[in-house]
Design a protein around this nucleic acid. Sequence first.
DNA 1: CAGTGGTCTAGACCACCAA
DNA 2: TGGTGGTCTAGACCACTGC
Lengths: 251, 251
Amino acid sequence: MTPAAEPTTPSFSPLYQQIKSLILQSLHAGEWKPGEPIPSEIELASRYGVSQGTVRKAIDELAAGNLVVRRQGKGTFVATHAEQHVQYRFLKLVPDLDQAGDGDPGPAERTIVDCRRSRASADVARALALRAGDAVLQVQRVLSYAGRPTILEELWLPGTPFKGLTADRLRDWQGPMYAMFETEFGVRMVRAEEKIRAVLPQPEQAALLQVTAQTPLLSVERVAHTYHDQPMELRRGLYRTDAHHYRNDLG
Amino acid sequence: MTPAAEPTTPSFSPLYQQIKSLILQSLHAGEWKPGEPIPSEIELASRYGVSQGTVRKAIDELAAGNLVVRRQGKGTFVATHAEQHVQYRFLKLVPDLDQAGDGDPGPAERTIVDCRRSRASADVARALALRAGDAVLQVQRVLSYAGRPTILEELWLPGTPFKGLTADRLRDWQGPMYAMFETEFGVRMVRAEEKIRAVLPQPEQAALLQVTAQTPLLSVERVAHTYHDQPMELRRGLYRTDAHHYRNDLG
DNA sequence: CAGTGGTCTAGACCACCAA
DNA sequence: TGGTGGTCTAGACCACTGC
């Protein structure tokens, strides 16, 4: 606001950016839930006292960031991991023989190996913007495709927002885990970043994936963020790549 | 055009999409070279007989696809791998300790291991949309960071567009290889897709990277495309991930 | 200063959907 | 049929660049 403080700040914010921020606030505050429609462009325009075109440009950017989905003739809806056409939006592992070509890895069998409350180690705390020793939820599970264990992943969640999450609730839930986070805990994952390495498994890891300790695996460390770039999940995955590969499109 | 032929085709093309196609054609035809400005929005509007806003929306999409770069007050320029802020746009390997945080892996020493003309094998031909036996150029090189061999890559180029490419010219060129393809051969890479696996190296590969044959490595197979999604390069890379990692942002 | 892209508006019309 | 998002236009004004 005061142009004296930040020299590198563009001392100018377009109207549509301000509108975008306002809509973002309402999304974060849960004024409209995932899957629900947000008010029409005309209604938002009159609410904020700007033209429809300005609201339109704001929503354009939200839609580009997958925060919102437009459907012609129906309205604009809060994006969700549940009913979304692209389920498992953040999972880039696809079968080598992808006949359909749609990157759909097919149905996965999920096995919860472990689920318990613990305290954040230094690196987990750093990734989740907590303090070391804070309460976290720790889950370990295996995903299998066609009976073949393929992904072993361990994930950490901050304890407070996910109070009440148990192994049983995880087991009972059908569909993407991120969809459960939305409907059960009101936490919507919006963005994620992954660091990928090639590693050899520890003996216990090898056993869970039914491979030898000499089998090279993809190590995928993901930090998923909710609104305002707040980190809400750390996930460390080990991917078998003998029948699958990690697919990435570089625009 | 004829709505009878294709049942699933949206028998409707917005004006700005048509304008986008026209601009794309000019880009492909080389009417404006990489780094050069394209005509102003007003000029394009009058050339195509549409309003400035329509041209604007067309250019918006081209800019979103990194085909073109807008610079306020100066004009709109054909994107290039050379002077682009993000050099090595397609290289996602970054140092584990990235102090600057800009993903800049720093200067690389390049060593050409091999460069020769050969004939396309079946899989190379399929990737490059050629026929098996067609002339291809085959290059093998090593990239080192701080004296440490980190990337071993082998790449195949279709023989015809790259007539005259030799090991010497590769060695002499400073800067990104894709920048050379632009200025020397008029081939601009626009999009790429990568398939990533974890593998163990062959003995010769291990020697070139100065690692043991038990060191897990990232296998990165990239197909790079020029305009109209035409494949123009197949690149198979082996990445050491003991001091670097592959970084990916999931929007 | 003139020329460029960037923002904002107001209004018209079209395509899609549901009741 | 009415409401939604999608397209297109025309014009005004702003911000940035270079001369």
